[in-house]
């Protein structure tokens, strides 16, 4: 059975879409979860974390930036794709310093929750243990680049929602890193406030609001109670309610 004029099929489930929607938007709106870290409903997609890779025929595409097109037959929740997603997650872990027991974000971290979702038992690859600059200059916000996964959600949130353009990604390849758009390069000299979306959208523990870290005890945090799948679908529904 083939999909209709205004539907796509993901893992044999027929899903409606509207013109201009990405595969990710159509899937989440229909309650079909495609794993993602750098996608966030309401922000323009970036396509950089590659966790949302799905297969259409012989091609692999990132669902967050690929347009839904009538009749697409898409594979998403397959053992092969989830194994590849786990390998990507392991690479994200070893490239940074993700020492969960010492991180304020533990239990609220999407990278950690993704690793749980994909059944990641070890990091597999050798650790980089990079030394990256920490910026504690801002009175309310901590920037610890050790944990940054370069999803650029803060870049997009600051530019497109907060209209402050505080962040950017500089450098290429393994030299890529998050910079602050101020003459000193320090967060304290930026107009960033702790109520900004950019201060609250970090999926990992790279951008933290100070003096909040342990308000909720470990064991009672978001991903101690819910899966990243549940939260991913919830965020989409919440964004739709705003419209």
């Amino acid at each position: 059975m083939t999909a209709g004029n205004d539907t796509i099929r993901i893992d044999n489930q027929e899903i409606p879409f509207t013109a201009g929607q990405t595969i990710m938007d159509a899937a989440l709106a229909a309650g079909v979860y495609i794993p993602h870290l750098c996608h966030h409903p309401g922000l323009p997609p970036s396509g950089n974390c590659r966790l949302c890779m799905v297969e259409i025929g012989n091609r692999s595409v990132a669902a967050c930036i690929a347009a839904a097109t009538a009749g697409q037959q898409i594979r998403n929740d397959t053992p092969e794709l989830n194994a590849a997603r786990k390998a990507i997650t392991q690479m994200l872990f070893v490239e940074g310093n993700h020492i969960c027991p010492s991180c304020e974000k533990t239990g609220n971290c999407k990278l950690q929750a993704m690793a749980y979702h994909l059944g990641m038992l070890d990091d597999h690859f050798p650790q980089f243990y990079p030394h990256r600059e920490l910026d504690a200059s801002h009175p309310d916000i901590l920037l610890d680049r050790s944990r940054c996964i370069l999803c650029d959600l803060c870049v997009r949130a600051s530019r497109d929602v907060d209209k402050k353009n505080v962040f950017a990604i500089a450098g290429r390849g393994t030299q890529a890193h998050l910079i602050v758009n101020t003459p000193t390069g320090k967060l304290v000299d930026s107009p960033m406030a702790k109520t900004d979306l950019a201060a609250n959208i970090c999926p990992v523990g790279a951008i933290l609001i100070k003096e909040k870290g342990y308000e909720v005890p470990i064991g009672q945090r978001i991903y101690d109670r819910q899966t990243i799948r549940d939260i991913g679908l919830y965020e989409q529904a919440e964004e739709k309610n705003k419209e």
Binding site: N97, C100, S102, D122, Q127, Y129, S146
Partner: peptide
């Protein structure tokens, strides 16, 4: 069997690795 965070990825003691 590697038991616990430190055995698996170095854990808190590995925080000296940045220096």
């Amino acid at each position: 069997v590697a038991v616990g965070a430190c055995a698996i990825n170095g854990g808190v003691p590995a925080m000296r690795n940045y220096f």
